[in-house]
Simulated scan of single mutants.
Amino acid sequence: MGQVVLVTGVSRYLGGRFARVLTEHPGVDRVIGVDVVPPPHPIGGADFVRADIRNPIIAKVISQANVDTVAHLNVIATPLSAGGRVTMKEINVIGTMQLLAACQKAPSVQRLVVKSSGSVYGSSPRDPAMFTEEMGPKALPRTGFAKDSIEVEGYVRGFSRRRADVDVSVLRFANIIGPGISTVLTDYFTLPVVPTVLGFDGRLQFVHEDDAVGALVAATVTEGVGLVNVAGDGVVTVSQAARLAGHPTVPVPLPASGWLSQVVRRARLANLPPEHLQHMAFGRVLDTTRMREVLGFEPAFTTAEAFRAFVASGRGPEPSVLPAIQSALGAAERWTRAMGTTA
C-alpha cells in the first residue's frame, strides 16, 4: 500500500505544484491538500480539505484519513500575502505548533517533511564561506521570516524527541526562484531600479522552483534525512544578478536600508522586509554535500541557470512605478545625510 500524504499550504504556488507532482508518484496512493482557501491553481488528483492548521481540527483530518506522511510547506516568507506580519507569524509559529501536536497524537504518522530556509543561518560579515547543517548563525536573526523559521525548527526538534519513531526531514532551501514563483527576491529583482548596499556585493544562491519541488518529493518518499541544505551549484553576486536582470542599480548606505525598506513597502512597490538588504549586503552560501550524499538529490539547474530562467519569464512592475521608486531612493539618501549631520 502506498503513502497517504497530507500537504499544508497547498493554495500557495509551491505547495500546489508539489501536491500535483506528488499525485503522479507511483509510491503515493493519496494526497490531501490543506489550506484556509481553495487553491487558485490545479493540484492534480489531490483532495482539497479546507482547514486551518492553527485550529486543532487538523488533528481530525489526519486521523480520519489515516495520514502516514505530513509535508509541511505552509511556512510563509511574505507578510503581505499572509495579511500582515502578525498573521504571518501566527500561521508560521502557532500553525506549526498545532500541526505538530496533531502529528504527535496520530499513531498513523510515520514521516514528517518540513520546508525550512537557509535564512536560519542569518547574514552577517562574520559568516563562513559556506554554511554546513551543523553550523549556527553568527548573528541570530531577530525579526521576520528568519526568526519564524528558527522557531519552527525548534518545535520540530522537540517533536522529533517526543516521537522518535517518526522519520523527520527538514530541508533548508536557498532562495527559491523561477518563472512562476513570487518571493521577496523576485520582487526585488523586478524593480526597474535595484537598490544595493553601498560598498557591499553579497554572494547569493538560488534553487529553481522545479528543483525545490523535486527535493521535497525526494524527502517525502524516502526515509528521514534530518537537516539538509538545498541549493543550486555556484553563486552569483547581487551586482551580477542585477545585470542579468537588465536593471540599473543605485547604492544606498547600509544605515539607510531599514528606512528604504519601509518606504518601498508603504508605497507598495515591493515587499522588502527590513532584513532583506542586510542579506543583499553580506549574502549567504550553503554547503550542499548532504543534499547529494544523504538525500540523494541532484539539482537540474545551477544558481545562475535558475536566475536566468526567472529573468526569461519577463516579469516586472509597470514602468509607471519608476518615479515612486526613485522618490523612495531619494528619501533614503536624504535620511542618511540627515543622520550624518546630527551624528
Rank of each mutant, 00 (worst) to 15 (best):
V207I: 15
I150D: 08
A164P: 15
G199P: 06
T143F: 15
P195T: 00
V194W: 01
V194Y: 00
T196N: 01
I181M: 07
R142Y: 03
V184D: 00
L198W: 03
P141F: 06
N175M: 13
Q205N: 12
L140W: 11
T183Y: 02
V197F: 09
F173L: 15
L171K: 09
S149N: 11
I150F: 00
S149E: 09
V184G: 05
S182V: 14
K147W: 11
T143L: 15
T196S: 02
D167I: 11
L204N: 07
R142F: 03
L185S: 08
V193K: 03
R172N: 12
E153C: 06
L140N: 00
S160N: 10
E153N: 08
V184T: 13
F159S: 14
F206E: 01
F189W: 01
D165C: 09
P141A: 05
A146E: 07
E151W: 03
Q205T: 12
E151N: 07
I177N: 01
Q205L: 13
V184N: 06
G178S: 03
T186D: 00
A139M: 10
P195V: 01
I176L: 13
G180I: 08
I176K: 01
V207K: 00
Y188D: 00
L204F: 14
T183I: 06
E151D: 12
I181Q: 01
G154N: 14
T196I: 08
G144M: 07
E151S: 11
Q205D: 05
E151G: 02
F206I: 07
R203Y: 09
V193A: 08
P141R: 07
E153M: 04
P141S: 06
V197I: 14
G199K: 03
N175C: 11
S160M: 10
G158C: 12
V152T: 05
H208G: 02
R157M: 11
R142W: 04
F173C: 07
L185H: 04
V194H: 00
R157F: 14
N175K: 04
F200H: 13
L191M: 13
P179G: 11
S182L: 14
R203K: 10
F145H: 15
E153G: 07
Y188E: 00
E151L: 15
A174V: 13
D148R: 02
K147I: 12
D201H: 04
P195E: 01
E151T: 14
R163D: 11
V168I: 10
R161D: 10
L204V: 13
Y155W: 09
R203M: 07
A164G: 15
K147V: 13
F189N: 01
T186M: 03
N175H: 12
E151I: 13
T143P: 04
T196R: 00
T183E: 01
V194C: 00
G180Y: 14
F189K: 01
V197Y: 08
G154V: 15
L140T: 11
Y155R: 11
P195G: 03
R172A: 05
I150C: 13
R161G: 12
R161I: 13
Q205I: 13
P192H: 03
N175A: 11
G199E: 00
R172H: 08
T186F: 04
L204T: 11
I181R: 01
T143N: 12
T196Y: 02
L140Q: 06
V197C: 04
V170M: 15
P179I: 06
D167K: 06
L171M: 10
I177D: 03
L171F: 12
V184H: 09
L140K: 04
L198K: 07
V194L: 05
G158W: 05
L171V: 12
S160H: 10
F206K: 03
S160P: 15
